[in-house]
């Protein structure tokens, strides 16, 4: 009699759910993307015309904006999170725990609430910042609201914790004596960062960077609330195809393009990272 390890049976419900609600929808999306334009049925009439027209019809720029936004956000949050993670790790204790908890807390406040807050803060005239400056110092300031920069600011604001927490785990993987050994052997501040800290913290950096990049790739609330009409991101373009243009195959093709970019980044990383090692600590 064949007996399977209990591990398999424990995994089975989760595997079934993920196949049904994650893998199957993706298959359907890919299928739809190969259908003739503006059709609503899944047939075997495959073709690549949606992909051909994706770039011809001007969907290149939204995809490009999303990629640029994701890249910039990843770089900026990383630059902000690294010193923060180093400080929190170095001075671990009660204060660091409180600060860490305070940074984590906003994750659980809806991003629509926080982005809305950022927009009333930045609003011209009677906004929180402009109004306060006017009332206290009689200074008139303009606004960055409804610009690409504002959308980027929102992305950095929302995704900072997603970069910080994996990075904290990564920084925690640097034993203090390795830094001392490098110092003892003549390494300066930059050499230590390059030769010891970054390689040892790499798993955490990779997870944080990947998470931030991927979340930003699909982000559209920031552009909608803060960016005004200054920028159209890929998600907004897909939504427009689905809902207003009623062109499901075209929307599906754009979705597949985003999924391909994501997969190209995520698959190699997931193959390399030993998540167990990061989590087990």
């Amino acid at each position: 009699m064949m007996r399977r390890n209990p591990g398999f049976w424990f995994a089975l419900p989760l595997i079934a759910a993920m196949l049904l609600f994650f893998a199957a929808p993706l298959v359907i999306v890919v299928w739809f993307s190969l259908m003739p334009p503006r059709s609503f049925d899944l047939t075997t009439d495959f073709g690549l015309q949606n992909y051909q027209s994706a770039f011809a019809d001007g969907y290149g720029p939204p995809l490009m904006w999303s990629l640029i936004g994701a890249t910039l956000t990843t770089a900026i949050t990383a630059a902000l999170a690294w010193p923060t993670a180093k400080i929190l790790h170095r001075h671990a204790g009660r204060w660091a725990s409180i600060v860490t908890a305070l940074i984590a807390l906003p994750i659980f406040i809806s991003e629509s609430v926080r982005l809305f807050g950022l927009s009333v803060f930045l609003m011209p005239g009677g906004g929180i910042l402009a109004g306060t400056l006017k009332a206290l110092f009689d200074v008139q300031i303009g606004t960055i609201l409804n610009t690409r920069f504002a959308a980027l600011l929102g992305m950095v604001y929302i995704h900072f914790p997603f970069m910080l927490f994996p990075m904290l785990l990564g920084v925690g993987m640097i034993p203090a004596d390795r830094i001392e050994a490098a110092q003892d052997l003549g390494a300066g501040r930059w050499a230590i960062l390059r030769e010891v800290e970054l390689p040892l913290a790499a798993p955490g950096l990779l997870v944080g960077g990947l998470l931030t990049f991927v979340l930003c790739l699909g982000a559209n609330a920031e552009a909608a609330i803060l960016g005004g009409r200054a920028v159209t991101v890929i998600t907004a373009a897909i939504e427009q195809r689905f809902n207003y243009a009623q062109d499901w195959p075209m929307g599906a093709a754009l979705t597949v393009l985003v999924i391909l970019v994501t997969a190209a980044l995520v698959f190699p990383a997931v193959r390399r990272i030993d998540l167990n090692r990061i989590i087990r600590r």
Binding site: F22, L210, G218, A219, N220, T235, E239, V258, V266, V270
Partner: peptide, 10 residues
Amino acid sequence: FFPQPVLGLA
């Protein structure tokens, strides 16, 4: 590691 709005759309 999947863009959430894209998951929603799919």
